[in-house]
Design a protein around this nucleic acid. Structure first.
Ligand SMILES: [Mn+2]
Ligand SMILES: [Mn+2]
Ligand SMILES: [Zn+2]
Ligand SMILES: [Zn+2]
Lengths: 155, 155
DNA sequence: TGTCAAGTTTAGAATTACTATAATCTGATG
DNA sequence: CATCAGATTATAGTAATTCTAAACTTGACA
């Protein structure tokens, strides 16, 4: 678990002015103690360079294929779980057949559109859980999830 | 969906004083528009005569076997979904590998013990969701679920 | 009380969403 | 550049659930 910040890359190899997603992603993986393999780099880019996303392993795998990144589905699953353990992703339970991962790590809740299977964020400050009973004896709360299930009006 | 209350049974066949679970269950099924088959009667008894329960299809199937009720697993699944559609059961999503059904239809929320997979009720009046954003355009809220995930202290 | 269509049950096959295995590959370190 | 722990992958395996289609009940009615 010990990590050291080893200077990587020669700093002058490219002087472009635009964002340096490559090294941001690199640092992110290194910071999480994960080797920056080709597959993890590519998946991390897909995950973290497009704003907040809610996706399943299959969705990310399809994304990768569209982007001409060849990664096996097993690696997608492995990677999602590793990122989750490393604190880079949240796991969301809203459907008992499918696991969603969330790139938005801030404190927030969700709308869930049952018929389409989509998720939308509700910022943490828009939901107030004003009262909660104490956790049962010997237990501690690991997280409180609020899921607002919605459906098209009338139905 | 039309139902008529046809008087059933001769009223005098048995004058016992104790509860009449048989006819309570019968009425419950009839009221839901479901034919009171042997299997549905037996499963309804197991579900509704033991206080509030949170269970999966496999759990109910095991229960049935213990009670010497022979029902196929397929029928257990069918019945749970029919009871749910009929408004006799709630479906709870807390684990993405398993579906739980809840015989407690009152407004309430849940503690979820991740390591044991158990659920405990939190009475509706012990949780206060004080603020919620409006449902997205064209959508209406079908339900708000609060799940308090707990784990043994320190871990 | 017998008939029959509609509804129900069931064994077993199929599907879906993963997880495990074990052979192969790769990239960090010396 | 050699080494090898760690990573990837094809493929097999598993768990939960759904589907299929044949066999059985149920209940309305003759
Ligand atoms: Mn998972
Ligand atoms: Mn499953
Ligand atoms: Zn989110
Ligand atoms: Zn409950």
């Amino acid at each position: 678990m010990m990590k050291m910040h080893i200077p990587h890359d020669t700093p002058s190899h490219d002087a472009r002015q635009d964002a340096r997603p490559f090294s941001q992603i690199l640092d992110r993986l290194r910071g999480a103690g994960l080797r920056p393999t080709r597959q993890r780099m590519a998946l991390a880019k897909l995950l973290f360079e497009g704003g907040d996303r809610h996706l399943t392993a299959e969705m990310l795998h399809a994304d990768a294929q569209s982007a001409n990144v060849r990664v096996s589905l097993a690696t997608v699953y492995n990677t999602l779980h590793q990122f989750h353990r490393a604190g880079l992703l949240r796991e969301i339970v809203v459907d008992s057949q499918r696991t969603y991962f969330d790139t938005n790590m801030s404190d927030h809740h969700h709308f869930y559109f049952d018929q389409s299977g989509e998720l939308a964020d509700i910022p943490g400050d828009q939901v107030e859980v004003a009262a909660l009973p104490a956790a049962p004896d010997g237990m501690e709360v690991s997280r409180v999830d609020v899921v607002v299930r919605v459906r098209p009006q009338g139905a």
